[in-house]
Design a protein around this nucleic acid. Sequence first.
RNA 1: GGGCGCAUAGCUCAGUUGGUACGAGCGCUGCGUUGACAUCGCAGAGGUCAUAGGUUCGAUCCCUAUUGCGCCCACCA
Length: 882
Amino acid sequence: MEKHFDWTGVEPKWRQRWQELEVGHADVTSTKPAFVIALPPPNITGALHMGHASTFSIQDTVVRQRRMRGFEVEWCPGTDHAAIATQNVIERQLAEEGTTKEALGREAFQARVDAWYEEYGGRIYEQMRRMGYTCDWSRSRFTLDDQYVRAIRLVFKTLFDEGLVYRGPRIVNWCPRCRSAISDEEIDWQEHTDPLYYLKYPVDGGMDITVATVRPETMLGDSGVAVAPGDTRYSAFLGKSATLPITWRRIPIFADAAVRPEFGTGALKVTPGHDPTDYEIGARHGLPIINVIALDGTMDVPELPQFHGMPVAQARTAVAEALRSLGVLVKEEPYLHEVGHCDRCGTLLEPLVSEQWWVRMKSLAAPGIGAVESGEITFHPARYTDVYLHWMRNIKDWCISRQIWLGHAIPVSTCANGHRFAWVDPPVRCEQCGNTELTNDPDVLDTWFSSGLWPFAIFGWPERTPDLERFYPTDVLATDRGIIFLWVARMIMTGIKFTGRNPFTDVLITSTIQASDGSRMSKSKGNVIDPLDLIDKHGADAVRAWAAAVGTSGQDMRFDEDRISSYQRFANKLWQVTNGFLLAKVGNGSVADLDVHPPKPETLRSEDRWMLAELAAVVRECDAGFAAFRFHDAVERLYDTTWHSFCDWYVEIIKLRLADAADHESRRAAVWTAVTTLDTLLRLLHPFMPFITEECAQLLPNAAPTLQQRSWPEVDALWSSDETAAAHHEIGEAIELVQRIRALGNAQRVPRGARDRIRVVVRAADGKGISRHIVRLIGGLVPAAVVDGRERGSTPVVVVSGRLHAEVVIADTAADASATTRQIGLLEATVVRLETQLANPEFVAGAPARVVDESRRRLQEARDQLEVLRGGQTGERTDVAG
RNA sequence: GGGCGCAUAGCUCAGUUGGUACGAGCGCUGCGUUGACAUCGCAGAGGUCAUAGGUUCGAUCCCUAUUGCGCCCACCA
């Protein structure tokens, strides 16, 4: 027998079994209720990371539990072409090879991309299989699939035809490296400290006005100076014109509410071409838009050859220098502000005006707001509801066009007569005039435009496929909070718009796994952890159980490898108790010997019922945990019950009985209880730790080809009967007494071999006596010897637990009353506190009756125990049988 | 600038309508190995629940303010 559980052979075996049994495959014709999750498709830009491992493990946990509960489960996997991210990755590769995509050409570049998708798409699925995920691989989707592309085009065309998609020049976030616009949601804001320059512009009539800016180079494109309405410092300037140094252009001075009078000098240079705020101000005042920065991030000012073609950063100092020499740069001071960067390549963004495609969002957002306000869609944790609603209520039009090579082409053509139309199937002639000279739109769609259709497009929409009818809407959407706006909100909007249904009912936002120092894991910091490395080190079960336990607390979590290894040890514990103890020792190596008929209830001992009561509690807590998406509650309770209640207490207790071969009936009750308990625990644990639980379950009676074909445990009437509850209480007291007696032995440093030095007499405080069985049970668990009575001249140390108490005598040791004294001290403090509390009329009058009664009960109990400890023992003497 | 979250044992974290002042894992201390498991067992030490007020018969929990950390949003000149 293996010394420790070795997962390296077990995991591949079960992966293959699940594959063969098509555990993940959903039958569209099944009559079971459906439960559906659309897997958030990972980008094909590399490997699975901890974020995936966390959210995917949770989804697999949910999905496995729902299968056991009798649902027809569809967990549809897929991958996202991630146009801009993939293009960046491949461009970086090309750069390392000393070439560019332009040098390669479109076709060769596309070939590189296809090869990449081929390699990494498969690799990601392989990694997911290693984690043990039971996706429905037969329905894998890719956002570049033909059917998916048709769905995208139909959505676009519908929005276009309804006027919800439009094209127009507006100021956008431009990435000079990607040479593309990006949306507001794709900006990575970073703090910068830059000089704030104060520039003095001459004004008609010999005055001058000073503006503050961190971007002096844009002053070449200024078309106005704005001040706050009612700012008396500048009332004399309104309506006058300033003269722009260098270009010597005359620009108007006016008032606009967007100006913050307290900032800088209170006067704002207005550059509608290169600042979003200024763009809006300019629009309000009819200012001309002057573009001075080109799409490649260099200055575009042919009339000023000294700056033309200069990179913006360089132009900034050059222009500042020119202004200084003109004497109009009057002050510089450091200024901390946030600057937008491309979240894909990190390049500094340039706001500039260009023609883009936009989606009008207001009308699309309204029902998406309603769906969440009404509770039809619920966020977990609930606080993300407000995050979502705030964004939705303030939604702005969405820039969906990208000027990159990869991605879905915008399905719009323009004919030679200028007719522009959207299409689903590539057209050969103009819809309006039949002209065949068509020009296709050169742009591609934002990747999130296609991702936003995921929950219904994966099932064949717009065709009314059986899959769509059966599996849409989905149930749970589990993802990271970073894409609530980018993805979740858009799925809700498009889902409602195009299917009339909410795409899911629950949004589960999982914890973000941070590096162990609390910083964000990122490739650039070099502190990312590869989940597959963790599997190699600790086994997939350990990683999965950790991910589930940690992933839904609603709080960010620092990576803690010790916690993963604790689940690795837990897997070993399960293996030991199932294989090493139950099968090998109890069943003598044969499953048949464990296959006992259910015993008559009256043959169950107290400890059997105690175990069943513990089991009932853990089933209930598990169900509650699943219902509330609080998996850490379920996992921790399962861990505790399995390890401590079952292994440490129940198994140790029944070892004595099992050794007594004479009592067949009792033995059978113990075997049945142990098998039932373990079988139940394995089923409850299976969604979290599928491999080890499968392996163990095979060693027990009732084994199915996979636990996925077993039912989810329910509480049996026997487990929750009054008699069982009473037995649970009885054994609970005995356990506590055992712990107190053991503590004495440990405190006295009595070696185990010298157990007969400790003598124990157990009594019942209420004089009712104790069952022989309980006395024997206690005797078997403490390192103590049988005594017939107190030894002459010795003074016992007394310990109490509920109605039980024990007199403990340790031979050859001076009676150490400190344990008794300590107990007395604690009890006295309790008595004083409770007496004080109960003497307070406001407490008695103000607190609920049950609280007052509980205090009285505890006071009485404490007094009774004190009486025992102080030597006023009463009750019948019962000797320990050992 | 606005909003949200977090500060609980040396470390990482639980703590579900306010009611014995609170637990787990790891770490630490002591004891224990031919009997499922040393990836183990038994026992133990360790917390004025960030700070200051308030509400309440009673506050880790509710309210206010402060400090520190993190995140999100914002027209961030």
